[in-house]
Structures are given as C-alpha cells and as structure tokens.
Design a protein around this nucleic acid. Structure first.
Length: 576
RNA sequence: CGGGGUGUGGCUCAGCUUGGUAGAGCGUUCGGUUCGGGACCGAAAGGUCGGAGGUUCAAAUCCUCUCACCCCGACCA
C-alpha cells in the first residue's frame, strides 16, 4: 500500500473525548472514528488489524473442528420469550418493531437463534457433536459505553456454540476451546491469563475468562503467587484463618454506643477491630428482602449474592426503606431478633466461626457485644458471600493472593441444558430416548482484543503492534523524493515475497513521516536515506524494542522475511 | 437512572463573569524558501457558536426547555 493512497487521517492532538491509551491512539493513528456513544467506524488500518485477529481466530476455531456460519443480527422476539431472556436482558437489548408491529431485537448474543436452528435440524445423536461459530457484530445497549472500543454498544465478537450428547462431550468441547483460546491470544502477542469466572446472565455452571493484563482493565483479578489459581474477583474465594474460641465464652451484653453508626465509629468507640464485628445489610430481591451478614471488614460480593438468591433484581435497601419495612434503625441493625420466618437471613461462612462479636442491637444507640453467632443467631444460612481480597490465602494451596487488572477478551462457558431445555432442542440417543442437547458457548471480543493489544503495546510516540496483528509488517520511509525509486524497488521486492508493506511515498518532511510511522506502529520501519544509501544500506528500526539495525540493500528482503517469520514463530510456539 | 462536566471552523482551545454581531494555534489550499524527528514566510478558504424557544434595540454571552458527548457513581450502615 502506498501511503499517499491510504485513508488514515492521523491527528497531532488527541481528541478530548478519549480517556484511555488505546482509544487515544486509535483516534490519533486514524484507525477509528466515533459515530455515536459506543459506536465506531473502523477505518482501513483498524480493519486490517481486525481481519488479522479474525484470521487467527478462524484458524484456531477450525483446528478444533469449529465450522463458521453466519446468524442473523435481527432476531424475532419469540425465541427470546421462549428462553425467558426477553425480559431478563432488559434495557441492554436494542429492540425494534417492524411495520406490522412485530417485535425484534438486535442480537446481543446468539444462544437463542442458534439453538433454534440446531433444534430444527438435529434429530439423532449421530448428528452430534457440533461446533458452530461466527464472527459478527453484537449489539448491547450498555448502561455506560466507555473507553472507546473497550466497552462499545456495537462490537465484533466471535461466538462459538458447542452441541454435545453428554457431559463428557461438553467437557471435550470446553477443553478444545480452552486450548484454542490460549493459542489465539498467544499468537496475537498478548500477555494474558485465564481466570475462573462467574457465569453471569448467560447462565450455566462453569466458566473461565481470558484476561489481558493491563492497567486499563475494568476487571479485577486475584491470582495465587504459588499455584495457578486465578479468578475474577466476582468469583474469587479465599481462605482466612480464624482464631479458635480460645477466649472464654461470655454472655451476650447490650452496650451503649451513642452516635456510633458506622463500623469504623463503633470499632474505635469499643476499641475493637472491624474483623470482630458483623454487619447486617438488607437487599431487595424478586423474592422479597434478604438480610445479609458479613464481617464488618468485608464487602458483600453482590454477584455471589445474586447467584444465591436468584431472580433479576438485587439492590441494597435504603435506610428509609429499612426503617419503613422493618422499623429498624440503620447503623444499629443486627441479626438478633430478626425473624427467619419473615426475612431470609444469609451469612457469610466466615461469620459462623467468629466469637465475641459485636453486632447492632436493632435499637438506636446500642450494640451487642460478646455475641456468639452459633449461640445467639443460629437460624441463618451460611454461604460464601464475601469479596475476596489480595493478601488472603489461596483456596488451593498455601500461597497468597495477588491482584491485577485485566481486560476480558474472551470467556468460555458450560451452558448445560439451559437453552436446549427452554427451546426444546432434543435429540434421540442410542436407546431412542429424547434427550436435551448439552451446550457450551465461547466468545472472543475481536474489537476489544485489538484495543487490549494497544493497551499492552505502546509508548509515548504511539502503538507498537505485535507482528501477527500489525496492519502492515514493514513501513518503508524514504527520507525524500530522491530515495523514492529505491524505495519503490524494495516495495516491489518485499511485496513479491508476501511481505505486507506500507510505503510512505508522501511528499512530506521526514519528521512528519517518522512521527506518523511511530504513531501507526508498524513493527519494522525501514528508512531509506541519502546517508545509508551512500553505503548501499538502509536503516532499520524495530518498533517493539526500539532497536536499530543497518541492512544492505541486497539483504533487505531476506532479512525482513526472516525477522517476520521468527517474530510470528515466537508467539506461535509460545502458543503450543 | 443519580451526580458532575463539556458542546465555538477538521483537531486543541480562548471569548461567556460584565450582551454590541467571532478569535488563536494546529490542520487544509495556493505561492515561495526549505527538507534526517510534526519547518519558515506570505496569501486564502473554512463557523446556523449543538438545537428550539424566550428576554433585549442587540445574544456565543442572560433565562427556559431540549439533544449529544465525556467523567464519576449506581457503595456496605
């Protein structure tokens, strides 16, 4: 490609709307332009990157017996009603109505539609397993689209759905995708980590996310410093050693705590640690209120809580609400005296092992101390409810948990029979019995992967593309028009060898060309200038490392090919 | 949905407090001088000041409504 012909309007200044690196650099490098909040145009450079990522994804999907198809974006409401998600998805779904007043949505995901297709065509166990995928736009009307391509309302996703006859088959499909995903992100040149994940709205029981490690990541992950345990904080569990009841057991005692409402206030007033208190929160749910007990120092993990209580609605009740519904004063609320018949009481498992605890007395200005949970409020359900934190112990070994931020670029789920049952996708097994198909689903955010790659590969001058997903592999920069004939010759020779070359044939000053080259971030920059040419050489700069080299004109093609191949191989072998 | 902020030429922004009919830098076009890390000189094009309504002799500026975009939050007693 000749740069004079390239549609890549670069910017000297960063548009005010961009906050994070990838967004800024993609705007500046002339890769994307916004058309609405969370909706972007991909200009040619971005499109090339997306195509390359997609190609890698396709290769790895196909290698694991995936078959590409294309599902409709516009989907009828009925199948969503059948699965029960027309209402569950709520405002996040872009909905539309046709001229006959029939309802549709723009597909936020494709379980319903593909399950319907498979249900209509698959009859026998002999038709299975199937692994079907597509790479296509998804539409989600996010509460708050942000960070450029990171959280868009229209984005590109690869989604594969597996259909198996039994759990063992599902496990095989799941592992196949796990392998494929590891290869894909390695080949893309990313530093990433698979972590245990909550399965969220899609449902199912087992799930892992692939996180690209980067500061800009919206997800917090916890990982063990000595084994390979790693989990999204939404899912993470930790082990906390608790003191045994070596203290003497005292009778519960009411204690005046005037004006001491927060955990911190109560703790400093009574001279105790937050770990010795239990706080009581009320949540509103689809099934009425639940009381939730956790240590004063802990945070309720609302994802875990939501999974336990079920339904769609989950919110922390306001002080006014608690006063009105229960007649209890926030700041002094406690489990003692709560009637399990009237309100479901859930407590974090840690609470069960606590001793000499301070809790609210359900009376303004008073708390109870020396409370023994098992003695004083025995009728509670103990479940894992707390948010795990860095520094705590790994649930699998004696290691400690560390924290990192990650960008979720992929997630794999075992769905089981959730959709096949809802939509009646059955097959006849060897005995002639009708059985629901066992499903899995596996997504990769293609456009987000591009953004994530930039978050991991940039410097103050611009992007540093990994070789495998760079829009071009070699950037030829003749210093002036005098060197253009030599550059053209190299361009021709490199292109003939299959090298992807961008030739800066613009009539610009060298400084401008160099600045644009750094910004766009093509891995190998070859400067053809009078100084080098006098010695029959060109100057080479590797964008990733910043290293310089000099190649004689005659060896440019072979050196470039060699470098590209070894760069590709480095990530590819790492992937195996 | 709550809170905060911003909308002025392609980009970054000034002007608004105290109304008087729109500016700078960059970019773009033309001419010239330049030419190894975003050159210089000269000329020029380009703006319904997000939109609607109102106040006023007069509105980018004041008031009301509205739209869009950005950020924070949807938080723990």
């Amino acid at each position: 490609m000749r740069q004079s012909m390239l549609f890549a309007p670069t910017l000297r200044e960063t548009p005010a709307e961009a906050e994070i690196i990838s967004h800024k650099l993609m705007l500046r490098a002339g890769m994307i332009r916004k058309s609405a909040a969370g909706v972007y145009t991909y200009l040619p450079l971005a499109q090339r990157v997306l195509t390359k990522i997609s190609r890698i994804v396709r290769e790895e999907m196909d290698r694991e017996n995936g078959q590409e198809l294309a599902l409709p974006i516009v989907q009828p409401a009925e199948i969503w009603r059948e699965s029960g998600r027309w209402d569950v998805y709520g405002d996040e779904m872009f909905r539309l109505t046709d001229r006959h007043n029939r309802e549709f949505c723009l597909g936020p995901t494709h379980e319903e539609i593909i399950t319907t297709i498979v249900k209509n065509e698959v009859r026998s166990y002999r038709d299975l397993p199937l692994r079907l995928y597509q790479i296509q736009n998804k539409y989600r009307d996010e509460i708050r689209p942000r960070f450029g391509l990171m959280r868009g309302r229209e984005f590109i996703m690869k989604d594969l759905y597996s259909f198996d006859v039994d759990e063992a088959g599902l496990e095989e499909s799941y592992q196949a995708m796990y392998r494929a995903y590891n290869r894909i992100f390695s080949r893309c040149g990313l530093r990433f980590r698979p972590v245990e994940a909550d399965s969220g709205a899609i449902g199912g029981n087992s799930s892992q996310e692939f996180m690209v490690l980067a500061e800009a990541g919206e997800a917090l992950i916890l990982y063990c410093d000595s084994c390979n345990y790693a989990a999204n904080v939404e899912k993470a569990v930790s082990v906390i050693s608790q003191a045994a009841a070596d203290n003497e057991i005292k009778p519960m005692e009411r204690v005046a705590t005037p004006e001491q409402k927060t955990i911190d206030e109560v703790c400093s007033f009574l001279k105790i640690a937050p770990e010795q208190t239990v706080k009581t929160l009320f949540y509103g749910t689809d099934f009425g209120y639940v009381a939730v007990l956790v240590r004063g120092s802990d945070q309720v993990n609302e994802i875990k809580l939501g999974n336990i209580v079920g339904g769609n609605k989950l919110y922390l009740a306001s002080p006014e609400e608690i006063q009105e519904v229960f007649g209890l004063p926030v700041g002094y609320v406690g489990p003692i005296g709560l009637d399990p018949a009237k309100v479901r009481i859930l407590a974090d498992t840690l609470v069960e092992g606590m001793h000499q605890v301070v809790v609210g007395a359900n009376e303004v200005g008073f708390h109870y101390q020396y409370v023994e949970p098992q003695r004083d409020f025995p009728k509670v359900e103990y479940v894992d409810l707390r948010t795990a934190c860095a520094g705590e112990r790994c649930p699998h070994c004696q290691g400690h948990l560390l924290e990192a931020r990650g960008i979720e670029v992929g997630q794999i789920f075992k769905l089981g029979t959730k959709y096949s049952k809802a939509l009646g996708a059955n097959f006849l097994d060897e005995k002639g019995q009708s059985m629901p198909i066992i499903m899995g689903c596996y997504g990769i955010g293609i456009s987000r992967t591009m953004a994530a790659a930039i978050e991991q590969n940039y410097d103050e001058n611009g992007i540093k593309w990994p070789m495998a997903i760079a829009p071009y592999q070699v950037h030829l920069v003749p210093v002036s028009a005098d060197q253009l004939p030599v550059a053209e010759e190299l361009y021709r020779d490199l292109t003939a060898q299959g090298v992807e070359v961008l030739l800066d044939d613009r009539n610009e000053r060298p400084g401008v060309k160099f600045k644009d080259a750094d910004l766009i971030g093509i891995p190998i920059r070859i400067t053809i200038g009078p100084k080098g040419l006098a010695q029959g050489e060109v100057e080479v700069r590797f964008r990733q490392t910043g290293e310089d080299a000099r190649w004689s004109i005659g060896e440019v093609v072979q050196n470039a090919v060699k470098f590209i191949q070894s760069a590709l191989k480095a990530t590819e072998t790492q992937a195996l």
